[in-house]
Simulated scan of single mutants.
Amino acid sequence: MNIVILGAGQAAASLAAKLRALGHQGPVTVIGDEPAPPYQRPPLSKAYLLGQMGLERLTLRAPEWWDEQGIVVHLGEPARRIDRERQMVITDRGEYRYDQLALTLGANPRRLPAAIGGALPGVHVVRNLADIAALRPALAKGARLVVIGGGYIGLEAAAVARKLGLDVTLVEAAPRILGRVAAAETADLIRDLHRSHGVRIIEGTGITRITGSAAVEGVELADGRQLPADLVICGIGVTPETALAEAAGLAIDNGVAVDAQGRSTDPAIWAAGDCASFPTALGRLRLESVGNAIDMAEAVAANMLGAGQDYIPKPWFWSDQFEAKLQIAGLNLGHDRVVTRPAEHGGSVWYFRAGRLVAVDALNDARAYMIGKRLIEAGKSPDPDAITTTPDLKALL
């Protein structure tokens, strides 16, 4: 059986490795549009941007590993079309036949419209190696940076810029930072962290335009304020990469729509990672995380080989900002109660839905994270009041 994997990121590397680990002896081909071999994305906005991690540590597998595994990797080769009738992937260099095709295409950063200055030199996004190569030279000590977007990418970029000595203002149009992904209690902890390091945070105010002629000069806010800026980073989320799938006639629903096993509406085509949405008891979900990219890709690899097992996510996330680590277990969707437990340099936020523990955010509190994660994965829910009254959280297990 000839398997082609379209996309060459974390999910692709995990899927290819799992195919071989499960004993698949047939051809495996990985096709990616970036020139670099599969690499980790999370450090791009943290250690790699700071210069604390080189490309060799960023890369997921050594070049010889791919050869040893007999996996053919085509890099810097954008795909143009999927011909479902002929079961062929057409790139700008050739055609690749498949018996089964896995889409691990990831997601693309949202950009501001050119009409409001989004295309001006000095406006950056943080998603791939090319983005970092363009951004790094601009991160000069004393430069004025405006970060647009108060999600994790924007906050991580703001933290790195402050560590490098830039003057940083972060603007969030929603009433508060982390509005879509975390409780107000977690946002309060992160806001305090950033302000203690000199980041100015403006919430509840959108931007009207990025000003400048030949390059960025400032950011105009919806309330009329003018923020001087030498550069702008847009951290306003991502959209799943679905263009090829859509053109091929596959169902799209906030990503490539797959069934519980990872199969698209074409039985020969599968999807995993950031580009895929899958059914759960909470409705159709698309998860943007390393954990999901690995776990879903491995589940899809097994199902391509006939395992027939539904993918059950066990979500976990993390975010490094300054010297602090935020660790998250579970999904807080639909929570109706939040309980907080302070710690020496942070604390934890516990989410309940109908009395059931569904998620934990832990800032500089690895013990709370690990215990919360174990409880969630075991389907155990402590009494919410016990979170704050139990001296040793381990007793909750």
Rank of each mutant, 00 (worst) to 15 (best):
L375F: 08
R61H: 08
P384K: 05
A173E: 05
R127F: 07
L333I: 15
A183S: 13
V238A: 09
L135M: 07
P78N: 11
R356V: 10
Y48A: 12
R367P: 11
M53Y: 08
R176F: 02
Q10P: 02
G122Q: 09
A143K: 13
D320H: 13
I132R: 11
M88K: 12
G54H: 12
A115Q: 13
I294P: 07
K141V: 07
A16P: 05
L227S: 09
E156K: 07
S348M: 06
L333F: 11
V358W: 01
R110S: 08
A378I: 08
G198C: 11
W66T: 02
A13H: 05
D167Q: 12
E156N: 10
R93W: 13
A268L: 05
D365V: 06
R191C: 06
V358C: 07
A173T: 04
V300W: 06
A130C: 09
R136Q: 15
A229M: 06
S264A: 14
P43T: 03
L101P: 01
H74D: 07
W316F: 10
G7H: 00
C234R: 01
S45M: 09
D310I: 02
A158G: 08
E172I: 06
V72D: 14
A260C: 07
L396H: 06
I207M: 00
V199K: 04
A395V: 11
E185A: 14
E288A: 14
I71E: 00
V349L: 09
G379D: 09
S348Y: 01
D385R: 14
M1T: 10
T29C: 13
L189D: 11
A115P: 02
I207D: 04
R144K: 15
S277M: 03
I312L: 15
T208N: 05
T59A: 12
D259F: 06
G165W: 03
P137S: 04
S196A: 15
A102R: 01
A17T: 10
G273V: 09
K380F: 12
R97Y: 13
E241F: 10
P342F: 05
I236R: 04
P391T: 05
E344R: 14
W65T: 12
T59M: 12
V232N: 03
V73A: 14
A119G: 12
V4S: 04
H345T: 14
K373H: 09
T280I: 00
D385G: 13
D92F: 09
R374W: 07
V216H: 04
G9N: 06
D320R: 11
D266I: 00
R195T: 15
Y98P: 02
E203D: 10
I201F: 02
Q25V: 10
I387G: 08
G118T: 02
S381N: 05
D259T: 03
P382C: 08
A159N: 03
A159F: 01
I132E: 11
R263D: 06
K380D: 12
G32Y: 05
A297C: 06
K141C: 11
A251Y: 07
A114C: 08
G273A: 12
P315N: 13
V338W: 05
L285T: 05
A214K: 09
D230K: 11
Q40E: 14
D223E: 12
A17M: 08
D365F: 03
R263I: 07
A268N: 08
C275Q: 03
P313Q: 09
V146I: 08
K141A: 15
G149V: 06
A248G: 03
L397N: 11
R286C: 04
K163W: 07
L189Q: 10
